[in-house]
Amino acid sequence: MRAIWKGAVSFGLVSVPVKLYSATESHDVSFRQVHAKDGGRIRYQRICSLDGEEVPYADIAKGYETEDGEMVILSDDDLRELPVTASREIAVEKFVPSEQIDPLMFEKSYYLEPEATGAKPYALLRQALQESDRVAVVTVALRQRTAPAVLRVRETEAGDVIVLQTLMWPDEIRTPDFSVEVGEVKEAEVTMARMLVETLAGDFDPSELEDDYAEAVEALVKAKIEGGEVQRTETSTKSAGEVVDLLAALQQSVEAAKQARGEKAG
């Protein structure tokens, strides 16, 4: 894997230099639109919907369409004024019970690997998350935009690692515009439903999941290649500083958190 981002996790006065790796990859089957006669790829022109003329890249701008259909053109100067950040810090805001995070909010997942100087505080944070059964709510800047995220621990064959999962913003979660109305449910029906659940009960094993569609496409393509049904075309072809005294930094962080809540330090 190749690191896509480098920075540091900070909680209190403790800083953990880390590397970020994509934790998932899509293997969705994708097809290209081609000319059935010779396999040539289909190209699309950039045509203006108003005058019907082809538009060169130099004349293409970004536009924001309002709810009433008006188009607001944004210049490069406008875009430069938007708030962006290049921060390399993953700042822990709080530690919350893991069950309080709705899985619907999870967006993308990344593995965090500590730099050599951050191995010990990384292990400390990992153990603290495991023993408390909590996740760390953080903010992180990816692609110059700040996003909410959580840190949690995932067990893997290579060992336990901290995972960063970005979250959807609250207003991106849609509310269903329908309700389910049912009549009276009989106790016998409930009992039968429970029996069905118990009959199909088991443990989740990801290895049992198979992508039949992808396998079928691969088999079909392989058969066509072996049968000679192939069109040959020209297109075939060092971060935040290390905290020296980790214990002292943790103690100071706890005292500061207590004082922030109005509690007596000691």
Rank of each mutant, 00 (worst) to 15 (best):
Leu200Lys: 15
Leu200Trp: 10
Glu187Lys: 15
Leu196His: 07
Val185Tyr: 04
Asp203Trp: 08
Lys186Phe: 06
Glu184Tyr: 10
Met195Tyr: 04
Phe204Leu: 02
Lys186Ile: 07
Gly202Asp: 15
Glu184Lys: 10
Phe178Pro: 04
Val180Gln: 00
Glu184Thr: 12
Met192Ser: 08
Glu189Ser: 02
Glu181Tyr: 06
Phe204Asp: 00
Arg194Trp: 08
Val190Glu: 00
Asp177Met: 11
Glu198Phe: 06
Asp203Asn: 12
Ser179Lys: 13
Met195Asp: 13
Val182Pro: 03
Asp177Gln: 11
Met192Val: 10
Val182His: 15
Thr191Tyr: 06
Phe178Cys: 05
Val185Asp: 00
Ser179Gly: 12
Glu198Arg: 14
Glu181Gln: 09
Glu189Trp: 08
Thr191Lys: 14
Pro176Lys: 10
Phe178Trp: 09
Ala201Asn: 12
Lys186Trp: 06
Val197Asn: 00
Thr175Ile: 12
Thr199Leu: 09
Ser179Asn: 10
Glu189Asp: 12
Ala201Leu: 13
Val190Asp: 00
Glu181Ile: 13
Glu184Trp: 07
Glu184Asp: 04
Val182Trp: 11
Glu187His: 11
Ala193Lys: 08
Ala193Pro: 06
Thr191Gln: 14
Met192Tyr: 11
Gly202Lys: 12
Asp203Leu: 09
Glu184Ser: 03
Ser179Leu: 09
Ala188His: 10
Pro176Thr: 10
Ala201Glu: 14
Phe204His: 11
Val190Cys: 00
Gly183Pro: 09
Leu196Lys: 05
Arg194Gln: 12
Arg194Val: 14
Ala188Phe: 06
Met195Lys: 15
Glu184Arg: 11
Ala201Pro: 04
Pro176Arg: 12
